[in-house]
Structure formats: C-alpha cells, structure tokens
Design a binder for these strands. Structure first.
Length: 929
RNA sequence: GCCGAAGUGGCGGAACUGGCAGACGCGCCGGAUUCAAAAUCCGGUCCCCGCAAGGGGGUGUGGGUUCGAUUCCCACCUUCGGCACCA
C-alpha cells in the first residue's frame, strides 16, 4: 500500500511533507514553550494547567504503540486547553536509571550511560515524529547529575527528619526531643537514638538476595515460585543491612488523603488494600515456666475465650528460648527449612498447614492461671509471618479458617465463641452473632464484645486497642551501579555522616566492570555492590579519619518520585524547584474556589503503576510538604489510566507464533501461513517480541503518517479500555484525514476546493440564511460534542462526530470558508500537522501563526437543539410508530399527533389507554389495559 | 480463595441521568466512474420468516423491579486486572 505514488495529483494529501514542514516550524518558533512566572512573555492573566504523562524508561526496543496512546490523549488535552486560553505545562523526560542498561553493561562492557543516551535519542526522535506539543526546553533525565543532585538532596531531607506523631508530620531531626535516660547514657546512645528515629534508616532485614543478578530484589520483583522476575534466577532470603524509608508513618495520611483525589476508584481501592489498615488489639500472654511473654495482634479480641493454642513465626526471637530440650531438634529443623524459603515461596504452597510444638505453654489472660483452660500450647508454624503484627498469634479455630485447618491437622481443641446462625454448615464461623462460651461477653455482638474486652484488657494493663498495616517500610537500597549514589559516609565507629548539600551531586565513579561481587550458592559471604570496585571513590579521608562511602544506590522509583516538580523549573541550579514556579504550576483551585489537594491537573499513564510509583511519589511529596518545601498536600490531583493496547498473536498447530510478514489474510478473514497454507489460530494478547505481534510506530507513520497513527489510537475505543490493534482499521482513519484534505484542497491545482465558498457567495445562495443553514446547525452540534468529549476524555466519540460532519459536507457538496475553518480548529488537537496546513491555506494572506494560537470555537445553544424532533410512540412499551412533533409540544399535542398515525390507531382500536407517559423530546408511551 | 473491571452485529466499538439498541469506522454486498483495475464517490448491511407489505427475536445465562432495562437489583457463567495464610 504505497502512499507515495508518482501518479498522485500534485496537491495530494502528503502526511510526510506536512509533518516535516510543521515540526520544523514548531521547533523554530518554540510554539509550545511554556513561560514561567518571571519570564518576559509570561501572562499571569491566563489560568494554568499542568498535563503530565508517566515518563518512560527509554528501553533499547524503542517506542511501542502503547506509549503514543497516552501521549496522544494528553497532547489533545494540552492543545485544546491552550486554545481555551490556559498556560499549559506539558513536558517529557526520561526515567533512565534502571536494570536493563546495567544488564547490558554487564554483558557487553558498554557503559550504561552510553546505552542510555542512545536509547534516549531514539525515544526523542520517535516522540518528535508524532508531533507532541511538549515544551522540549524542559526535557530532563533522572540520570543527569544536575537532576540527581536533587534526588540526593531530597534523600537527605528525608534522612534529616523524624515523624512527630503528635502533630502528624515530619520535622527536622534537630527538633527531635531526646529522652533524659538516653542523654544520660552518653553521646553514642544519643546518636543511636537519633538514627533510630530518622525517616531513612539502616536496618538488618531479611531480603530477597539473588546471587545470579548480584542484587537484592523487592518482593514485587520475585515470582510466586521464588525466582527473579528478570532472568528467572533463584532467590534466597538472607539478612542484610539495608536502607529503609519509614513510609509506614504515613500510612494513615496516604489512605485518608485518597478521599479528596480525582482518581479512578479502582486505583484508590488498590492503594487502600496495599496499605491494609486493620483495627484490633494487642494482647500479652505470659509464657509458662519462663520470665517471658508473648505479644500478639488480633483483629478479633472478642474471641479471646476461644484461643486454644498460640502460634509464633519461625523467625520469632522467642522460639529458641522457650522451646523445651526434647523439642529442640524438631523445632530447629522446621525453622531452618521455613526460613530458607522465601516468604513468597512459603505462601505459594499454602495448601496444607504445617508446624511443630515447642513444648512450651502460655496462659490465656482471660482465665486465672490455675484454671486448666488458661494453659495453651505454643506452636511454631510458617503460616504466621514475622513481618506482620508481632509475628505471633493467638489461634482461635472456631472463628478463623486458617486456625481451624491447623487445629484439624494437629488435633487441637476447637471452641466456638460466636453462635453461628441456624443451619450453618461451614467450619470456622467468621460472621457476626451473639458471643457464647465467653463469660462476661456472652450475648454481646461482635462490635460490643470487642469494645468490652479491650476495655477489660486495658484496665488490667495486659492489652490495648491497636492498629496494624500491611504496608511495610520501603526497602530503598539496591546493589547496583546504574542508580543514584546514596550520599552518606560510614565512619569508623559505625556512625552515619550525611554529605553536606554543597557536596552534591555525588556522581557515579567511572568503572569498567559492572558486575557485583557475586557469592556462590546460597550462603556465600556478604555481597558487595559494583560501586565497591571503585576503590578510590569508595573511601574518603576527613580530619585524619577514614570513611567508607555507601556502596548501595537508590531504586529506580527514586528519580520518578519527584520529576513532576522538577518539570516546573528544570534548569534551576540552586533549588530543586523554584518556589514561584512550584506555586504557580502545582497550586490549583477547585471550581468552588477552595484549593485542590494536588497540583498536576491531569496525570496519565498505565495502571501497572497504580500502587508502587504513585504511593512512593505521594509519600515523598508529603515529606516535602511537611518540611515546607512544596505547597500542596498531594502531587497528582487527577489521575487517568489508559488501557493496554494488545494485538492478535497468530499461532500454528504446534503453538508457534508467526509474524505478519509470514501471514496471508484470506477473504473470510482467516489468517493462513503463506508457506504452508495452514490456518492459524488468532488470539488477542499482550504485544511481545516472542509472540511476534509487536506493532512498530515508525512503520505506521511511514505508511499512513503521524496524524493517522494518533487518530487511530484515539479512535480504537475508550482510552481506559484495553483494546486490540487491528492493522486493517488504520486505513479507515487515514481515509477520513484524506477526505478532510480534499474537502478543502483541490488536489489537482492546490487551490481551495470547489466545496469551499466564501460567506458572500453563500449568502446569495437561496435558502441559506446563516442560522437556518442545516450545515451550520450540524457544525454547532459537532463543536459542542467534540468539546464535551475532550473534557470527559472520550476521544473516540469526538472523532466519530467529526467524521459525521465531514460526511455531511460531502453530501451538501458545499461549505462556507468560516465553517471549514472552525472544523479545522476542532480537529487540530487530534491531527495537528494536517490542520496546520489547512489552516494556513484557508487563511491565505491573513494567516499569521500556528493554528494552536487560535481560540477554540464556540457553539450557540439555540443552534444545537432542533425545533422539531422525531420521537417513538410506544403502545404498552412496544415501539409501533415514529412521529415528528415540535420539541416542546405538550402531552395533549403529542397524543393527538400519535392518534393521527394509522399504525397507532390500529393498535389502539377497541382498547382504552390506561396511562400515558410522555417525556418531551424523548418518547410517548400509551399503556393499554 | 478474596477484591475490582468488563461481556452488545463478522470485527473495533456507540447509546447523556431507566426512554428509538447497533452512531462512527473496518469488513462485506451493490451501483457510479474506468478500456480495466486501484483509488474515489453514492447506497445497502443485527438475526430469522416473507417476493413484498409486514411479522418475530435480539445487548453472556437465568430470574426480578418498572409503562419501559444494554443501563437498576439477585444468582450464575466467562474474560481481564490486582491481592493472596496480613491474624
């Protein structure tokens, strides 16, 4: 399907030349530059609008058709808002630290900075090719020292803060009150106390250590089979000193503030579930024959009378102490094999409960210790996780299915403490009901019993109401090269010394071997990150003391946690963002004038970042807010998730995928393998190299042009839905663009087409008073529809409305020049290259500048409603006829018109109308007996 | 297992707040143009019965509410996404 054919007319629609011409124009004139407050051409009178895409990781594979989907949507909104008189901030940058470039470096020795630069060059070229209206002067990369200087600066802000529970906010560490008894123990104790309160802290934590990759992985990077998501290497649990960020302190605020955000409910729900707040109680159980007690957390303190045994996690510190000598061998063996498996591997095969008895007993505090019911056995089992609550539970098999399952395996007693309803035939009963077998709680509902028992526990000092979260602190260090160095020094006495702001950026040292020091097997020595290879860099001497640099780097999330702030003022070299710029672009008002919680007015990207990126960025933002560095509570006021674009994968009988270049499509639509004629199966799947179903945007642009690619991606269906790419549909939108071109331009002469008539000529034509002109009415309706659809992000229906209008012009064979101009204006955000050219040709000598500088056209409310409407007439809810009546006809008039219709009269013959339902402009329903 | 979203022609999809189901595009069929084809323009196209006029059915399945249900309620099936022993 060669579109560049020498036999084409001289002035045929040529996407390629229009693209080149107008992109050069935009670049040269800096058409989409967004001035900041303080700039000479800044116009304070205009309202602001910040429209942001999730910035991409510039992978070696280049742009994927999934990228332009979201980028086109935001581009349409950005162009539309500019025409509506907003100052629009619309930017693009690169989330360019990350594992793929580093893996490539390990394999080839090519420095990740070089790979990254090449990939960025490709991405930039491809994005520019699509004509997005970014302010390219604001482009940034997280890997640029001028950028990561400030990532490191923010880390230091977090490091130098503590969380004040009373005021519920972060405060500078210098304001931390030091308890007297700590002060009394000396300087080192004070230092350790302070370090223990920081929002960034070092902790020995069990991590997912992957020897093959030489790095620690986050839980998300480990598969259910306990292997690395990247490369499928084995992953082991081992304790390692790691940087942690105290995100759990913000759990409540992160959950509460979701309320105010204009985000998809599904994303809010995912975040709430991830935070996983639960309310319950902590209860102390004394351990028999030991000077020890077990702290447990439960959401069901009301079932305390039903606790028949205890379970502690294999990692629990009390395990060794309380296990009786005769049980040591069994307990040790069990714990060892449980601890060695990753948490995920452990939970994956959770079918059958396992555990061992420690030989020890605890006293249930609701009974006197002399009472035989008080003494309950303590077991170790891997269904209790050390990382949640206190790592120990009271087991209540009567009201908890997991405990029930365990009790059945090991023959432990079961006591019901909630009366199940009549006919209940399940095992553990989780529902509400009157308490039984529970002494002073008997007869109370679940809520009443919880309240009463918590009061009872608190009065005796053996328990209290408590809140727990699934959310864990954020494991922040990675054993990698290609990330931001963490700007701290480790002193000879183990003290942590943060770098001074003046020492930033701490740049990555040059090394030529990017491999970490890999230990053999499961239990080799301490792994050392690749930065350890830079010997000169890794040690620093100050005042005669030798310090060791932190060798871990930050995770990829770090750079993406604040880039939206940097875009406001990307070249500022004395602040992470200038205050005026931050306030102008981030602070937005609601319609009712109250300040909005969050600054970015539209943040658009895929749902795969629904939890982690968005939660981490919100956390950093709140810390910056608490410390007075930013002016909004939340970073992203409105969030929108685009759906995934998938494509048909064609497989042969053996299940082997085949690409389009090997396939012929028969007339019946079936795909056959060209070589053998075998009919292939077709399934919509995620695009991937291995399935050979990846669509390359360059190919589409070469064949149909950037405007057609943009338009197709928007026309496919709702932005939020996942949709299949169908190569056969692309020519459809291309045809529409071509029809629009020919509507306005005569292909043979290059002059305006014969359809386009001047206003004077039109007014002389019979019956074309401007308001009565049916085309004028249709245009007003189209402008209204397109405007409203852009506002609600329904681009597919906006495009079909414009298609309908163009079809109507073809039928009319005539359009006034001012009408054609308005059509071009509303189409321009969607197909900017085509519309720039049409605008210039329509304006002729009156043309001054880019179509994007023109105001958005209005519609007249009077012209979008028809005076006469056709409505259906139903008889008892069944449509029998259609009548045309004035829009505002009253019920009697509508009824009379209906009765005059033969079909209606026929249906009503011999019957009485019991009820009439008339919705003006909609329908008339005559209900008969 | 739990939570969430979605199921509409041959295909992608449309239908505001319960009011004409299938807009728009693809594909297919027919016509015009052409020596011919491509391209283009015009028309048709949910299914079934019927030459037609006309009639019947229809939004995953089964029930319900309503004058009226793609839309609301209940149960179930399927697909996709998230979580997964969180006490």
């Amino acid at each position: 399907m060669a579109r560049q054919d020498s036999s084409l007319p001289v002035a045929a629609y040529s996407p390629k030349s229009l693209r080149e011409k107008w992109q050069a124009y935009w670049d040269e004139k800096k058409t989409f530059r967004a001035p900041n407050p303080g700039d000479r051409d800044f116009n304070i009178a205009r309202p602001k609008n910040y429209i942001l895409d999730f910035f991409p990781y510039p992978s070696g594979a280049g742009l994927h058709v999934g990228h332009p989907e979201g980028y086109t949507a935001t581009d349409i909104v950005a162009r539309y808002r500019r025409m509506r008189g907003y100052n629009v901030l619309h930017t693009m940058g690169w989330d360019a630290f990350g594992l793929p470039a580093e893996q490539h470096a390990i394999e080839t020795g090519q420095h990740p900075a070089i790979t990254t630069l090449q990939n960025i060059t490709t991405f930039r070229r491809q994005l520019k090719m699509l004509g997005f209206s970014y302010d390219w002067d604001r482009e940034l990369s997280t890997t640029d020292p001028d950028y990561y200087k400030w990532t490191q600066w923010i880390f230091l802000q977090i490091f130098n803060s503590w969380y004040d529970e009373k005021t519920r906010r972060a405060r500078p560490i210098s304001e931390l009150p030091i308890p007297d008894e700590v002060r009394a123990r000396g300087e080192k104790a004070v230092r350790e106390y302070v370090d223990s309160q920081r929002l960034a802290y070092l902790a020995e934590v069990p991590v997912n250590w992957c020897p093959a990759l030489g790095t620690v992985l986050s839980n998300e990077e480990v598969t259910n089979e306990g292997r690395s998501e990247r490369g499928d290497h084995p992953v082991y649990k081992r304790p390692l000193k790691q940087w942690m960020l105290r995100i759990t302190k913000y759990a409540d605020r992160l959950a509460e503030d979701l309320e105010e955000l204009d985000w998809p409910e599904s994303v809010k729900l995912m975040q709430r579930n991830w935070i996983g707040r639960s309310e319950g109680a902590e209860v102390t159980f004394r351990v028999a024959d030991h000077d020890a007690s077990l702290e447990i957390y439960t959401t069901r303190p009301d079932t305390l009378f039903g606790a028949t045994y205890m379970v502690i996690a294999p990692e629990h510190p009390l395990v060794r102490m309380i296990t009786t000598p005769d049980r040591h061998a069994a307990v040790d063996a069990y714990c060892e094999q449980a601890i060695n498996r990753s948490e995920l591997a452990r939970t994956a095969e959770a079918k059958e409960k396992t555990g061992v008895f420690t030989g020890a007993y605890a006293f249930n505090p609701v009974f006197p210790e002399v009472d035989s019911r008080a003494r309950i056995p303590i077991w170790v089992a891997d269904y209790v996780l050390m990382s949640y609550g206190t790592g120990a539970i009271m087991a209540v098999p009567g009201q908890d299915q997991r405990d029930w399952d365990f009790a059945k395996v090991y023959n432990l007693p079961i006591i019901r403490t909630v009366q199940p309803p009549e006919g209940f035939d399940g095992e553990a009963y989780l529902g509400d009901g009157p308490a039984i077998n529970s002494d002073f709680l008997n007869g109370l509902t679940m809520a009443e019993a919880k309240k009463k028992i918590i009061g009872w526990l608190e009065a005796r000092g053996i328990g209290k109401g408590a809140v727990n979260y699934k959310l864990r602190d954020w494991l922040f260090s990675r054993q990698r090269y290609w990330g931001e160095p963490i700007p701290v020094l480790h002193g000879p006495d183990g003290e942590i010394v943060p770098l001074d702001e003046s020492e930033l950026p701490l740049t990555l040292p040059e090394i030529d071997d990017f491999r970490p020091t890999v230990s053999e097997g499961n239990d080799g020595g301490m792994p050392e990150p690749p930065l350890g290879r830079a010997k000169d860099w890794a040690t620093v001497t100050r005042d005669g003391r030798t310090y060791r640099r932190e060798l871990n780097t930050m995770p990829q999330w770090a750079g993406s946690c604040w880039y939206y702030l940097r875009f406001c003022d990307p070249r500022n070299d004395h602040r992470f963002v200038g205050q005026d710029a931050e306030r102008y672009w981030m602070l937005s008002k609601r319609k009712d004038g109250r300040p909005h919680v969050g600054g970015v007015d539209l943040y658009l990207g895929g749902a795969e970042h629904a939890v982690l990126h968005l939660l981490y960025a919100r956390f950093w933002h709140k810390v910056l807010y608490d410390l007075g560095h930013v002016s909004t509570v939340e970073p992203f006021g409105k969030l929108f998730n685009q759906g995934m674009i998938r494509a048909y994968a064609y497989r042969d009988a053996r299940g082997i995928p085949h690409g389009y270049d090997e396939i012929d499509f028969r007339d019946d639509g079936k795909a056959v393998l060209r070589e053998t004629g075998e009919v292939l199966s077709a399934n919509v799947e995620k695009m991937s190299k291995s399935l050979k179903n990846v669509i390359n945007p360059d190919d589409v642009v070469n064949e149909f042009g950037a405007d057609a690619l943009r338009l197709y991606e928007m026309f496919m269906g709702p932005l939020e839905a996942s949709k299949p790419w169908n190569p056969r549909d692309v020519p459809g939108v291309f045809r529409f663009l071509q029809r629009t071109w020919r509507l306005i331009v005569d292909e043979d002469s290059g002059e305006l087409s014969s359809f386009v008539v001047s206003a004077e000529t039109a007014s002389r034509a019979p019956g074309s008073g401007s308001e009565a002109d049916p085309l004028e009415r249709a245009l007003h309706k189209t402008i209204q529809k397109v405007t409203q659809d852009i506002e609600r992000m329904a681009f597919n229906t906006a495009i079909s409305a414009m298609m309908e209008f163009v079809n109507e012009v073809y039928r009319a064979k005539s359009i006034r020049k001012d009408q054609a101009e308005r059509l071009v204006l509303i189409l321009s955000p969607f197909a900017p290259h085509l519309c720039e050219e049409l605008w210039q040709r329509l304006r002729g000598p009156a043309w001054t500048d880019s179509v994007s500088k023109e105001p958005w056209p209005n519609w007249n409310e009077k012209l979008v409603v028809d005076d006469e409407v056709e409505i259906p007439v139903q008889v008892s809810g069944k449509v029998v006829a259609r009548i045309t009546i004035p829009r505002d006809a009253d019920e009697a008039a509508a009824r009379n018109a209906a009765m005059a219709n033969a079909k209606v009269a026929d249906r009503l013959a011999g019957r009485t109308v019991a009820k009439t339902i008339y919705i003006p402009g909609r329908l008339l329903n005559l209900v008969v007996q």
